[in-house]
Simulated scan of single mutants.
Amino acid sequence: MNATQWVAALPMYNVTPSLEACWRDWLADVLVAAGTAAQVVNVRDELTALWRRDDLLLSQTCGYPLTHGLSDAVQLVATPCFDAPGCDGPNYASAIVTHADAPFSTLESCRGTRAAFNQLDSHSGFNALRHAVAPLAHGGRFFGSAVQTGSHLASLQALAERRADVAAIDCVTFALVRDERPALAQAVKTIGWTSMSPGLPLIASKRVPADRIEALRRALREAIAAQPERARRLRLKGVDVLSMDDYSRITLLENEAVELGYPQLA
C-alpha cells in the first residue's frame, strides 16, 4: 500500500472544537516524526467502519469494541498515559457522578434513580458502571430507568439539566471537561469510582507493517516531548505498549456482572 493512501483520526477526546484542533496538531506531528504520510480525517459517526478500514494507520478506540470484534482487524500500537484523577499509567477508571446538589453520596444511595450512559459498546460509560452496580442489584434491577445519551458530554448535560441522576464518565473525558468546559463540570459531583482497566488504545490496521508500527511508537513519544505545553493541555504524559491479554480485564468485568445476574443497566 502506498504511504499516501493511509488515513488517521483521533475521534475520542474532542470535548471542544479547540481541543479537537489541538489533538489534530499533535497527530500531525506524530505523522511527521514517523516519516509517514496519511490523510487526517474527521469522523464523528460510523466509528466502527473507520476502525475496520484496511488503510487505517492510526486511530483510537474504546477497549470494549476492541475486545468485542475489532481484534481480528486491528493491531495495538500503544495506550496513552494521562495525567488525570482516576488514571494510573495506562489504566483508567470512570468517575461516578451525579448533579451537584443531588442528595446522593454513594452509588448505593442511587438505587431507583435515573441512570445515563453514552453507548452500549462503551466500557467507561456502560460496562464499568454495570460492573459497579452488579453487587448492589436485586433480581437484575437497581435503577428506576436508564437512558442512552450518545456521548459522555451528553450524559453530563443530562445530569446538569436534571434529566438523569447518575452516570459513569471516563476520567480523562471528565478531566478535559473540567479544563475546557468548567461550568459543565461544576454542575456535577463525583460520588465514586469504577474499577480500573486499560485505557483507550491507539490502533492500526493489521496491514500496517511492523517497522511502521515501531516508527509510530517512537513518534508518539517524540510528539509528546516536543511541545510540553500542548501535552499538558491534552493531559498526555506518555504511552505504554500493552497486549490483548491486558485488555481481557474488560471482558472479565463484564463476565463478573453477568455472573451476578446483572447483564444490563436496569
Rank of each mutant, 00 (worst) to 15 (best):
P90N: 03
H68S: 11
Q75T: 12
D72F: 05
V133L: 06
I96E: 01
A134Q: 08
L129T: 01
Y92T: 15
A49C: 05
C81Y: 00
D121Y: 14
G69C: 01
P103F: 09
L66P: 04
P65L: 06
N127L: 13
A132S: 07
N91H: 15
C87P: 01
A49F: 04
A78S: 11
A134E: 01
N91S: 12
L58I: 03
A93Y: 02
S71M: 10
G86F: 11
A49T: 14
R114G: 09
L56K: 13
T98K: 07
H123W: 15
D121W: 11
A84G: 05
D72C: 04
D101S: 12
A73L: 04
L50C: 08
T113W: 06
L56T: 10
A102Q: 02
A116S: 09
F126C: 10
A73F: 07
T67P: 09
D83Q: 14
W51V: 04
S109P: 03
F126E: 08
L129C: 03
S122C: 01
C62T: 14
F82I: 10
A102V: 06
S71L: 04
R53L: 07
A84V: 09
C62D: 15
W51A: 14
S109R: 10
Q119D: 15
P65W: 04
D121N: 15
L50T: 12
D54W: 02
P90S: 00
A132N: 04
T67R: 09
A137Y: 01
S94I: 05
L129H: 08
R114H: 14
L66H: 03
A134C: 04
D72A: 11
H99R: 01
G63P: 02
Y92F: 15
V74W: 00
F104R: 02
R114C: 13
C62Q: 13
H131W: 10
T61N: 05
G125C: 08
A93L: 03
S122G: 00
S59Q: 07
Q119Y: 14
C81S: 15
S59P: 11
S124Q: 02
A73N: 13
F117R: 01
L57P: 11
